[in-house]
Computed example of a mutant assay.
Amino acid sequence: MDYFIYLGICIVATASPGPAIFLSIKNGAKYGFSKALIGVVGNVVAMLTLASVSAVGLGAVILASPLLYTAIKVIGGLYLIYLGVKAWCSKPLSHTEHTEKLVITAPSRLKIFSESYLVGISNPKAIAFYTALFPQFINLDQPVFSQFALLAGTFAVCSFLFLATYVVLASKLRKYLERKKTLVWFNRITGGVFVGFGAALVSSNHA
């Protein structure tokens, strides 16, 4: 019963809109499914990293230090703002000067992975989530590592499935982004969303 409660929490948490989801949508729409899926893997690896940090107790240490927590929060928020400004200011390139059809050049797989990993790892709210959640579902009378592996693995699978679903749906929009005006507005909308998330993270109170 406890596991299914945890599963329900994971589903709600991973399906709810956030920076990782909007980054997956942006990548899927602009670069297609296969490239965007690399970003999904990057975000999932970041989530597993944060889960491991919380499991060994470092999450509690970070939460106990307002200065360290604030530093991570500000760095993460500024990175999201940077991604937003970068998306807003990006200029689409046409095949020629006489056509509105665009060539969208995808960054390398390593860059897509790294960008998604940094978006995931720089969110201190995830550390707070894991640190508060894991102890509620771990029985100290049973082997802890196997329980941790199950909890972290469940969250990772849920995250992967939902992000991949958003990527599939967004990749269907790629053909519409071949028009210059559409891509300009898409960049502005996604850029604005990232700036909003970043500003909210920077300005949020310690919790």
Score class of each variant (00 low, 15 high):
residue 4 F to W: 13
residue 6 Y to K: 09
residue 7 L to E: 08
residue 8 G to N: 04
residue 11 I to S: 09
residue 20 A to R: 01
residue 21 I to F: 03
residue 22 F to G: 07
residue 22 F to L: 11
residue 23 L to F: 05
residue 26 K to S: 13
residue 30 K to G: 07
residue 31 Y to T: 11
residue 37 L to M: 14
residue 40 V to Q: 03
residue 46 A to I: 01
residue 55 A to S: 11
residue 55 A to Y: 06
residue 56 V to P: 13
residue 59 G to R: 01
residue 61 V to I: 12
residue 63 L to D: 05
residue 67 L to S: 14
residue 68 L to F: 14
residue 69 Y to M: 09
residue 70 T to D: 15
residue 75 I to M: 14
residue 82 Y to F: 13
residue 83 L to K: 02
residue 84 G to C: 05
residue 86 K to T: 09
residue 89 C to F: 15
residue 91 K to Q: 13
residue 99 T to S: 14
residue 103 V to Y: 00
residue 104 I to Q: 04
residue 108 S to M: 07
residue 110 L to D: 15
residue 112 I to C: 03
residue 117 Y to P: 08
residue 118 L to N: 04
residue 118 L to Q: 04
residue 119 V to S: 07
residue 121 I to L: 13
residue 122 S to F: 13
residue 126 A to R: 01
residue 127 I to Q: 08
residue 128 A to G: 13
residue 128 A to P: 00
residue 131 T to N: 09
residue 133 L to V: 02
residue 135 P to L: 10
residue 136 Q to R: 05
residue 140 L to Y: 10
residue 144 V to F: 02
residue 145 F to A: 12
residue 146 S to H: 14
residue 147 Q to S: 02
residue 151 L to N: 04
residue 152 A to G: 04
residue 153 G to D: 05
residue 154 T to C: 15
residue 154 T to A: 13
residue 155 F to E: 07
residue 156 A to R: 03
residue 158 C to W: 01
residue 161 L to H: 01
residue 161 L to E: 03
residue 163 L to F: 05
residue 163 L to T: 04
residue 168 V to M: 12
residue 168 V to W: 09
residue 173 L to R: 01
residue 182 T to W: 08
residue 183 L to Q: 14
residue 184 V to K: 15
residue 185 W to C: 09
residue 187 N to H: 05
residue 188 R to T: 03
residue 189 I to K: 00
residue 189 I to F: 08
residue 190 T to L: 14
residue 195 V to L: 15
residue 199 A to P: 02
residue 201 L to P: 00
residue 203 S to W: 14
residue 203 S to G: 06
residue 204 S to L: 10
